[in-house]
Design a binder for these strands. Sequence first.
DNA 1: TATATAAGTTGTCATACACAACAAAAACAT
DNA 2: ATGTTTTTGTTGTGTATGACAACTTATATA
Lengths: 417, 417
Amino acid sequence: MLDSDFSQRGVEDNALGRTREHVRRHNLSTILTTLHREGSLGRNVLTQRTGLNRSTISSLVTELEALGLVEEVPATGQTGAGRPTLVVGIRDSVVAFAVAIDIDSIIVSVVGLSGRVLKSVSRRTPDAPAARTAIVMARDIITDLRKDLPGGTRIAGVGVALPGQVSVSDGVVSEPAFLNWKQAPFAERLSDEVGLPVFVDNDARLGLMAEHDFGVGKPYSNIVYLVGHAVGIGGGVIEGGRPLRGARGFAGDLGHFRLTPPLTIPTPGFSGTLSASLQRDALLEALGETAQIDDLKLEGLLTSSTSARVRRAIETQVERLGIAIAGLINIFNPEAVLLAGFLGILLEVDRDHLEKVIAEHVLEPSWTHTQILRTEPGSDLLMIGTSELPLAPLLKDPSGFEFTRAVTLTAVEKSTS
Amino acid sequence: MLDSDFSQRGVEDNALGRTREHVRRHNLSTILTTLHREGSLGRNVLTQRTGLNRSTISSLVTELEALGLVEEVPATGQTGAGRPTLVVGIRDSVVAFAVAIDIDSIIVSVVGLSGRVLKSVSRRTPDAPAARTAIVMARDIITDLRKDLPGGTRIAGVGVALPGQVSVSDGVVSEPAFLNWKQAPFAERLSDEVGLPVFVDNDARLGLMAEHDFGVGKPYSNIVYLVGHAVGIGGGVIEGGRPLRGARGFAGDLGHFRLTPPLTIPTPGFSGTLSASLQRDALLEALGETAQIDDLKLEGLLTSSTSARVRRAIETQVERLGIAIAGLINIFNPEAVLLAGFLGILLEVDRDHLEKVIAEHVLEPSWTHTQILRTEPGSDLLMIGTSELPLAPLLKDPSGFEFTRAVTLTAVEKSTS
DNA sequence: TATATAAGTTGTCATACACAACAAAAACAT
DNA sequence: ATGTTTTTGTTGTGTATGACAACTTATATA
């Protein structure tokens, strides 16, 4: 299923008519994208998968090889009769930088075109990292990492995952640092600093897209995704293989999904939403933990605890989560609901109760075939998903993509979903 | 914007590779679809719109003409210098039947490939129309209408709009008649009766798609749609130019969007949802009306009434509607919210209050550019949208489409989103 | 009536993929 | 060992489709 869509609005070419060149581009893109998703594949598999003629595959692979994007390995421990197939694999001579900015840390990864994380650097940030600080730190790390890249490595660009939508006035990203920095200037400034195209997107959406392409969401085209952070709930939706974006990229932020009616008195941050109702801190409090602990430890404590207070806290959270999921299933009719962060822990700890709550509040037909799944904890998927942003244009048009060396950016590159 | 998608899941061809034939098909489809949406266009406009060469347009139009799908009119009162262009228009020698089944009536329209309703027949049904009854009535009307068609007219198929999702256990379609008839058998039976391919879909989604392609939603690619029926609220979402469908076609049914937390005691029909909270009957009751009246009359009464009770009823409904819309905007970030049925009346009657309520509960960035619009009351759009279902395959592959004369159906035709 | 302008038609060319024949490389049978 | 079978890659030819350019048609304007 090559139905994913990492491309940002406005990138798609608007010419309705198609010409021969489009065919070539499409097929080139199809092959490279397939390899990117699935890893090395034999030529025979490619012909089978694409339905193209062997000679065509030959021509396309040759072209990709000439572009320095793939390489052919004579053979691997193959089996069966007949001439052994040539295995086509993606070369990591093309990389992208993935930057994940969080409230207390910044991570920068070098991700190869193959979708593998080649190197990662994590650094703690001051408590309320001003955007300026984040940009400088990102620039410095990138500059360092750049030095260590093997000679001849080409860089497609930089992807940045930001928690919550910048310029959102609710609690998800309430640091004034982010409020003062709308997305566009953020991308532009960082781009000016590193001299590479920079793409910015919401971290939950990027995480979801990575889950969809490489993680537990791979088999599904319709996914509802909820991730529980230290503060706030992020979310996203894949519909028909494509992420919900909405008019200006704010769609799918399910942390704002409402559980209870809003108070008539306007309050800062919207009461009654998922973000407001589901809180990791409530679990910590029940456990009597005052320090910040990571998800792994939290899971251990929750599983081993026998305290009634803890059980009650879990029950409350599961109850609310179940009602929210039921509501989301009713609206989105997904094949799978993916839970990440501490929401994944809740699923692990009390799946039965969660499913019971969902079943009580869901419409039968939508629910029957829906899976509730937990994402793999602590994986590199967010970084991989983030790297997809700058890689997307290359995957879409392998022969036409130009590796930017110039600092100047086009409007499209600056624009952020 | 040719970004609409009336095709049902499973119809899309799955071959990843593209060949020359795909180009031809795509271009043929593009031209026919453009004409279908926009009406007659000059060849010059087509070249401009598609970016294709004049000679290519010439070839494609000639082929479409040979297929009997379009005709070229020498000229119309044109202006300006230069040789006058040939105007290409769609011939209504190809038609589709649109069937709208409601609780108390059944409407069948003949819709031309041009998107014009050529003829309509409306008939009242017994109060709780058994599916069997509806099918027989539809068949009889279709048979009648068929006789009056001009010689040589070809029929693409039959589209059926059903209120709510069949096999949904909640209040939208609570008649046992529909509960006993799952969608697939419905389409199959009617198809057996009329010997034509039959496609079934939710009426709200069809209405929305028609609004998106031909109505007030035309300028937008991200739309939230709410329609207020006599009982229950229907809804739909257009995201990135395509309708939300979900895994099994149940997505976007916003009548189930939750306003207040569900009761812990399971009740038949889900309490606290839009359908449960927004009720046309509440307005009738406040007006002291006991008989059923149509939307036009209702609007008149509401506008002219000075009763405090009526005002309060309106206020309550507007309040709830506003909160719901705000929640939907937060999740879907649409460019436009379309209100139909009595919800459109509410907008007309008290737009200021509605927008005020929305503004109170919405996230600023998503709201700033969002339009709240009312659909044109009493238009033919539902019928047109419904006719798109059988027309879609023809529009998608003009030269490959085969007009079914045989009664046998393929699995795809039987399958319903 | 001549000229400019806009638009449709026709013929040639380039190209992308299909197809068929051939070559290569390995497994299997004798 | 050697030939046969099987699978795969390569090469050359064919076909179709859209680009492009030259030509023709048709109208407005001077």
